[in-house]
Simulated scan of single mutants.
Amino acid sequence: MSYLTKNKYTFYGVIAILLWSAVTALIRDLSELFSPIGGAAMMYTVSAIFLMFVMGIPKIKDYPKQYLIIGGGLFVTYEICLALSLGLSNSRLQAMEMSIINYLWPALTVLLSVVISDKKINILVYPSILLAFTGVAWCISGDQGISISTLLNNISDNPLTYLMAFSAAIIWAIYCVVTQSISNGKNAITLFFSATAATLWVQYFFSNEPSLQFTLPSMLTLLLSGIVIGAGYALWNQALIGADMILLGTLSYFTPVFSTLFASVYLSISLTGSFWQGVALVTLGSLICFLVTRDKKHI
């Protein structure tokens, strides 16, 4: 593979990471424009249609059944937990907290890999994971400082969203570890997006959410959001062909920083210094986990 070709695929990966960084803000915006479940259902519908245009209409028979059932179930559950934790948050600031909790998944992925692996583990893994969790606690506690009582008081304000956000982080970590062994090199992302949209629509029709009201600005935001998240996955799928995955892997661990920065501007949120410090700790903890566990044979 030529140098220019590798750079092209790496560029695709960088754009994918930047697009994913916008998802938190866009999902929250859609929940305010429409409703938490209805907004998410429409976004995943648009994304699924976009992916079908870009990647083609998938055929179920082309994928291992175990991958479709287990991988698909984990994917759909994750996306719903993430979208609704953001949409059902009491405020935009609380939605930012949900986003940071979600970004525990890289550290949890490493932890899960460590648990099921028989390889020798670098001792730095454990303090790195603790550092990431400390960063989340720092974000939730705010300027009051980390304490069990402060954390419990803040979580009790809206326990369902915190539960969904933390569950999402755990589920995505499991997904990342499990699908490597059961996907047989296949990528059913279009099917998974379609299943997510269908599940959300069922939830919406059985919920008490109001009917959807459309305006030109809200429809443009919906279209943009669906294309952004769909394009992120489509470009990442291309990046896997021949990108510099060490560079992209390292860059992806800065997604909490990119996501927080974009959301603070897009949603007009003024974040405190302690929140940014928490984001930095989550990022640093996850990055160290990655650096001390990566396969050095591929460097």
Rank of each mutant, 00 (worst) to 15 (best):
L151K: 08
D143G: 13
F262C: 01
L4S: 15
M55N: 15
L18V: 08
F214L: 14
L220N: 08
I299L: 05
K119W: 03
Y44V: 06
I140P: 02
F34K: 09
A234Y: 08
Q238D: 13
Y175I: 09
W236H: 11
L291K: 01
T10R: 06
I246R: 02
I80P: 07
S167Q: 09
A137S: 14
V115C: 11
I182S: 06
G71I: 02
W138Y: 14
V14W: 07
K119E: 13
I37S: 05
S117R: 08
L19E: 00
S91H: 09
S35C: 03
L108T: 10
L222R: 01
I70C: 08
F206E: 12
A173H: 04
F275N: 01
R92K: 15
L220I: 14
A137F: 14
L191M: 13
L4P: 06
L247Q: 06
Y12R: 10
S270P: 06
L291V: 02
A173T: 07
S194G: 13
P127S: 11
P159H: 08
S99Q: 07
T77L: 08
T250S: 00
Y67L: 08
S194P: 04
G73N: 10
L287E: 01
A188C: 10
G142D: 04
Y44P: 04
K61W: 12
L108P: 04
C289V: 09
L240D: 10
I69R: 09
Q180A: 15
A169W: 02
S167T: 15
L74C: 04
V125I: 14
A197G: 03
I129F: 09
L4Q: 15
S225L: 07
G285T: 06
K65H: 11
C139I: 06
S211W: 12
I57W: 13
V46N: 00
Y266G: 00
I148K: 14
I269S: 06
V114R: 03
K297D: 13
G73I: 08
W276F: 10
V23D: 07
I146N: 05
N122L: 05
L131A: 09
L131T: 12
F193Y: 15
M1A: 13
Y103S: 03
Y12S: 11
L68R: 07
T77V: 02
Q180F: 13
G56W: 04
V228A: 08
C139A: 11
F75V: 03
I116H: 04
F193K: 05
M164A: 14
V76W: 01
Y266S: 02
N184A: 15
T77Y: 00
F75C: 03
E97H: 07
V23G: 07
V23H: 08
L108N: 05
S264Q: 11
L261I: 06
L200D: 07
P36G: 07
G142T: 04
S141W: 01
T150K: 11
M1L: 10
K297R: 15
L4M: 14
